[in-house]
Amino acid sequence: MAKKDIGVCDESTFNEVFRKNGTELFNFLHFKYRDEDEAKDLVQEVFGKLWENCEKVSVEKSKAYLFVVANNLMKNVLSKKSTALKHQEYVKTKEASTETPHYILESSEFEGQLNQALSELPEEQRLTLLLKRIEGKKQREIAEMLGISEKAVEKRLFKAMKHLRKRLGNIL
């Protein structure tokens, strides 16, 4: 039996794994870094690792492998542009909507502040919160993805929300 039979070395198998998990992995990295280009590059890097080790990773294990690598990679990322800075840019360039000026003012102020507050959160807390809020993951699923306990997930969620509540207290 050839090694490649059990791994993901076959090109079409690998492509399927990419298509299936690429977006989720991108979202994951975007939650953490809030930087589109950064997240895209990291997705490439993570799949590069999978490709290097394709004969050791089965199709079933490939998703878990991707997130483990993503978690480890993230610890090595250095010298990122301040996410807070990125954020101001993001708010400024957000597309115009058809709401009344007053509403825009109010809501963009709220959104801007919320964005700002999100950027101040520790990466792990923000990631946990957004996996729950945007991806609709269960506590148990998040715990598995991050390699931590469910209790730790609950703690992070609460801490994150508490911080946002405190930070936005004046405009709620």
């Binding site: 990419f18 298509r19 690429g22 977006t23 991108f26 979202n27 975007h30 939650f31 809030r34 589109e36 997240a39 895209k40 997705v43 490439q44 709220f110 959104e111 919320l114 964005n115 999100l118 919160l129 957004l130 809020r133 945007i134 929300m161 946002l164 509540r165 936005l168 709620l172």
Partner: peptide, 18 residues
């Protein structure tokens, strides 16, 4: 706040292009 977190939705990821 919970509803407002929608603002943190990631941009569209073009998986085929990537």
């Amino acid at each position: 706040i919970w509803d407002g977190l929608e603002v943190a939705s990631p941009p569209f990821y073009d998986v085929e292009k990537e």
